[in-house]
Amino acid sequence: MKGIAKSLMVTLSTFTRKPVTRDYPNYHRPLPERDRAFPLLLWDKEVDEPFCTGCHACERACPVECMTVLMKDNPNHKSNGGDSSRRKIIDKFWIDYARCMRCNICVEVCNFDAIAMNNTWQGHETSVHDRKDLVMDLQQLLAQSHGGAIKEWVPTLGQANE
């Protein structure tokens, strides 16, 4: 009986505490900058083109093979009178968000810091009627970085910070 009374007291004390749950769609918890949602491509604001050169490194390293990369000659390259130093640039890029397992490997292998994991609340609502809608193309992958929404945190592998 004593124990039952004690249980009742615990729940009663919880009754007076503030609720810990949050009203999710109306309230978005601030995310840590390391947060890893799905991968996104980054936009080089200086020369106004994607960082990605279409080097296929991420495509080869992806464990679930959910990326498709096609490259092309950069029309904006210096030799063509442009102001970019990239000889090749990304032409088409697809990431199948339905298959991606958010392992961060593509970010780690990219030599151009051209891809990053999304650390904002945008792009989390992946409920769609057709799985094909989860295959993101280049425009969709670049949109957030282009709009300046994502906080940049490209992890430096193996570096101590203290």
Partner: peptide, 21 residues
């Protein structure tokens, strides 16, 4: 999540040490 970036599938330990500090 603050450390590794993910809530369940951390992928934070790497052969040799940790992914990042």
């Amino acid at each position: 999540e603050e450390i590794s970036g993910d809530r369940m599938m951390y992928a934070y330990f790497r052969p040799g040490g940790l992914a990042w500090d």
